[in-house]
Design a protein around this nucleic acid. Structure first.
Lengths: 233, 233
DNA sequence: AAACAAGCAAGCATGCTTGCATGTATTTAT
DNA sequence: ATAAATACATGCAAGCATGCTTGCTTGTTT
């Protein structure tokens, strides 16, 4: 199937054998199935919503049997809490993809400098940055996350995890947005301005859930890019 | 065991009395049950989400039996599509409650029982208007609407109705927002500015779903009220 | 006052989802 | 190569939600 793409530190619950077996599935097929189940879970979440994403549906989409899914994730909660982490990781990847170069590196990049590093290769100019940020909230990943949020708001098992996810990804998004926009957060109001922009992006993504009015979205984005330009100087 | 049920009159009588306390034992009882089911449906939607809002739960909350619910709404779809209309009506009422009763606009419609409005008869000043608009997206009504949207995005039966609802309420919200803000839509960009503001409000309401960070919300609202003031002149 | 219709409550049948148990195949270790 | 363990597939029972049918209470009509 796919190559060895060791991204997730798998935590399958298998007990160490007596003869010094290292933890983790040694078989590539297992990892592939694991990953495929996660991807299928996210895709189903975006397409069929929470209630419609039964383990049977997810397993079928993943191309495996329901028993296989159960083998990897004993309960439904386990499957989707794992999917939560997967979504967070994917969104972070998509986020960092906005960086053509510059400060990157997995996990690190805590540079809170602020007013430097605006002009980059891929995304240049405030309007383009705003458009790129909004685009983050129009794809299937945000769709899945949205379904996850709504479901988590009423599922006690999911809520803490999804809340933590949202906080983490939200912080990262804000940080990257500040950098890309070249905003100086030491100036009063700038932080709230960027936050409001991201909230608007969220709102646009929410509106996009039912009717994909790209025209309206583009106009709003263009106008707010102007307002942002004036606000940030 | 008990063969024929000859002494099963006490319990129904009690329930009937409770139902009768609403209004006079007339044909109005049917309407009362009808309305109570709708309110219960909306409340359950906000509290338990779509999947958690079974007809049993809704009926129990409404204080009627599941059979009664079925009598009024033969199918679950009927119940919640009716709830859709109810939500739209309630949101419109909450919207019109923002009018200080002096501005133009079609229809007076004084509040016949203010829902969860901000409780200010007259909203004066741009910051107050923005805050009032955002407050529209933090209450249980928006919560119910949000669950409805997400559910409708994957339910073929609901989607057209909820889409129509959103369009209608969205237009009304926009119109009222323009009036309250004293914005001149003939000026290019003003329309998109207001739309972006409402999208931001939606985004804030969405974020409010998981974590009710009123402080952050207030700060964002305050900042963007300033920006809006500058943009609208 | 009696008959009729409507609102309402309870029971039953069906379909679906979850979780567990059993069986089979592929892989790893001795 | 044999044996053990893991990965996977299939079958089964329990729980729940929906929809339908039946029976009882309440209100209207003649």
């Amino acid at each position: 199937m796919d190559g060895v793409s060791d991204t997730a530190t798998a935590e399958p619950r298998l007990k160490a054998a007596r003869a010094g077996q290292e933890r983790g599935p040694k078989q590539d097929r297992s990892r592939a199935t694991h990953r495929r189940l996660l991807e299928a879970a996210v895709a189903c979440l975006a397409e069929h919503g929470w209630a419609g994403s039964t383990v049977s549906v997810v397993a079928e989409r993943a191309g495996v049997s329901r028993g296989a899914a159960q083998h990897h994730f004993p309960t439904r909660e386990d499957l989707f809490t794992a999917a939560v982490e997967y979504v967070a990781e994917e969104r972070s990847v998509a986020l960092r993809a906005l960086f053509p170069e510059g400060a990157e590196g997995a996990g690190g990049a805590e540079g809170a400098g602020g007013a430097e590093g605006a002009g980059n290769g891929g995304v240049t100019g405030r309007p383009a940055v705003v458009a790129a940020l909004v685009d983050l909230y129009t794809g299937p990943l945000f769709r899945a996350a949205l379904h996850l949020w709504v479901a988590a708001s009423n599922e006690d098992q999911l809520r803490p995890r999804v809340t933590e996810l949202e906080a983490r990804v939200g912080r990262e998004t804000h940080r990257i947005a500040v950098e890309l926009l070249g905003a100086d957060e030491s100036v009063p109001g700038v932080r709230e301005t960027v936050q409001g922009l991201l909230d608007m992006a969220r709102g646009l993504g929410l509106a996009n859930l039912l009717t994909d009015d790209a025209g309206r979205r583009d106009r709003v984005v263009a106008q707010w890019a102007v307002l942002l330009d004036e606000a940030l100087g």
